[in-house]
C-alpha cells in the first residue's frame, strides 16, 4: 500500500482536534470528513487526497472515545495513520474498524510532509520511497489482523457466531 504523508510532529493530538464535538450531532462519514482535523489544521481538508497517510508523533488520538475520529479520517480518504504511539481507545477503535493504525517509534522525525511511503504490512516495514529509507514498525497483533481481515469487529463476531450456531 502506497500513499503520500501528511506529517504532524506535535504530540498528544486529541480526538477533539481530529473531529470537534460540535460536529458529533451526526455519524455520517461524508459530513464528518468535511471537518476532519479542523481545529489543528483548518486547510487539511483542502489538501488531503484519497489514499494519503497521516504521520504523527506520540499519543495520537488521546481524549474522547469518539469513533467519529476514525470515521472522519476514513471519510476523507486517509488509508492509514502511522504514529510514534497511539492513545488506547483510538487504537482500539482503529482495530475494530479494520482501519490501519501503525505504531512506528520515531517516525514523526524521519518523514517529511509529502514523502511517499509504502507500507509492507506482512514484512513489518515502511519504505520511504522519497528518501530511500526503511523503518521497522511494531507488528500488528494476530487477533487484530484477523479482525481487520474480517472487515472489523462486528463482521468478525458475525462470522464467529455463524460458526458456533452451526
Amino acid at each position: 500500500m502506497r500513499g503520500f504523508a501528511h506529517v504532524y510532529r506535535r504530540t498528544h493530538i486529541n480526538t477533539d482536534e481530529i473531529i470537534p464535538a460540535r460536529y458529533l450531532n451526526t455519524d455520517d462519514e461524508v459530513q464528518l470528513a468535511r471537518h476532519v482535523m479542523e481545529d489543528i489544521d483548518p486547510d487539511f481538508v483542502k489538501r488531503v487526497k484519497p489514499g494519503n497517510f497521516i504521520v504523527a508523533a506520540d499519543d495520537f488520538g488521546c481524549g474522547s472515545s469518539r469513533e467519529h475520529a476514525i470515521w472522519a479520517l476514513r471519510g476523507a480518504g486517509i488509508k492509514a495513520v502511522i504514529a510514534n504511539s497511539f492513545a488506547r481507545i483510538f487504537f482500539r477503535n482503529a482495530i475494530n474498524n479494520g482501519f490501519l493504525a501503525i505504531e512506528c517509534r520515531g517516525i514523526a522525525d524521519k518523514v517529511s510532509d509529502g514523502d511517499e511511503l509504502e507500507i509492507a504490512l506482512r514484512d513489518g516495514i515502511i519504505n520511504n520511497l522519497s528518501r530511500n529509507e526503511h523503518y521497522r514498525f511494531t507488528p500488528i497483533p494476530d487477533f487484530a489482523l484477523k479482525i481487520m481481515e474480517a472487515g472489523g469487529l462486528l463482521n468478525h463476531i458475525k462470522e464467529g457466531s455463524k460458526f458456533s450456531s452451526g
Partner: peptide, 26 residues
C-alpha cells in the same frame, strides 16, 4: 460505555472503561 470517562465507575471498585461505538455494538 462509548465514552472515555467511563473510568469514573472505578470509584465503586468496578472495572470500568471507555470504548468506541463498535465495541459498544459488540
Amino acid at each position: 460505555c462509548g465514552d472515555s470517562h467511563t473510568c469514573t465507575h472505578g470509584a465503586l471498585g468496578a472495572f470500568a472503561t471507555g470504548v468506541g461505538s463498535t465495541d459498544l455494538a459488540a
